[in-house]
Simulated assay, not measured.
Amino acid sequence: MAETHADEPTRRDFLYVATGSLAAVGAAAAIWPLIDQMNPDASVLALASAEFDIGAIPVGQEITVKWRGKPIFIRHRSEEEIAEAESVDVSSLPDPQPDDARVIAGPGGELEKQWLVVVGICTHLGCVPLSYRGEYDGYFCPCHGSVYDTSGRIRKGPAPLNLEVPPYEFLSDTRIKIG
């Protein structure tokens, strides 16, 4: 009779390992399409962020760009507009937020107070406010009369919140990336 030792691999051991490996590869190949389909579509990724040239916007002017289907107001504020926004008693606002909290640091590390970037949608019912209108020379929503100041903060009207500040960063002195 032939004797076999348990320490030596047998042909049966090889078949078990090969079958298990083949089953694992097959399961991974079957699951991969299910996991891959959960990734965002290319059109969604394309809208995730956008870059804009702000170098041509003169002081006291504003442009409107689109990001994720929403209007974004990029305003180059004058020294007077900044001073007016900073002089407001924050505790008197319906949605108290200082002007410094609504702007970010630029490439040099200093707050870029001259640039205001806000989502141009009224926080009351979703209308698009008009620029350089209203008592505070900021934004005025013609739908229900909400008035925002030069920092995009609600001052009067039914809107409960300030205009939203989207995530953005300065790539250089003349380029901005939103999203």
Rank of each mutant, 00 (worst) to 15 (best):
G152D: 00
R102L: 11
R75M: 01
N39F: 06
T150F: 03
E112G: 05
P129R: 02
S43Y: 15
A159R: 05
D149F: 06
V103A: 02
S151H: 07
L130N: 07
V117Y: 02
G120F: 06
L125C: 10
G55W: 09
P160R: 08
V103T: 05
H144K: 12
D95Q: 15
D41G: 10
P167Y: 08
E86H: 11
C127P: 02
P129Q: 07
E80G: 01
D89F: 14
R133S: 01
E62G: 06
Y139M: 07
T123M: 07
V59M: 08
I74F: 04
L47V: 08
P94A: 00
F140G: 00
L93I: 05
V147P: 04
V88L: 09
L161G: 01
T64H: 08
N39Y: 10
C141N: 02
V59E: 04
E62I: 15
V119A: 02
P160I: 11
D95G: 07
L47I: 11
R155T: 03
Y136G: 07
D99K: 14
A50N: 14
P40S: 04
V103N: 01
P58N: 02
T64Q: 13
Y132P: 05
P33C: 04
G152L: 03
E80H: 11
R153H: 01
S49R: 15
E86T: 15
D137Q: 10
L34F: 11
P142R: 09
H124A: 01
I74P: 02
P158R: 08
Q97S: 15
T123V: 04
S87H: 14
E80P: 04
P166I: 01
P107A: 08
C127F: 10
V65P: 05
V128Y: 07
H144L: 03
P94Q: 04
S49A: 11
E112T: 12
P96K: 08
I54M: 07
A46T: 15
I154G: 00
I82Y: 11
E86D: 12
D100E: 15
V165Y: 03
N39D: 05
A30P: 13
W115P: 02
A83I: 13
P167T: 10
V118Y: 04
H124V: 01
S43H: 13
W115K: 08
E80Q: 11
G134V: 06
H124P: 02
A105F: 10
V165F: 04
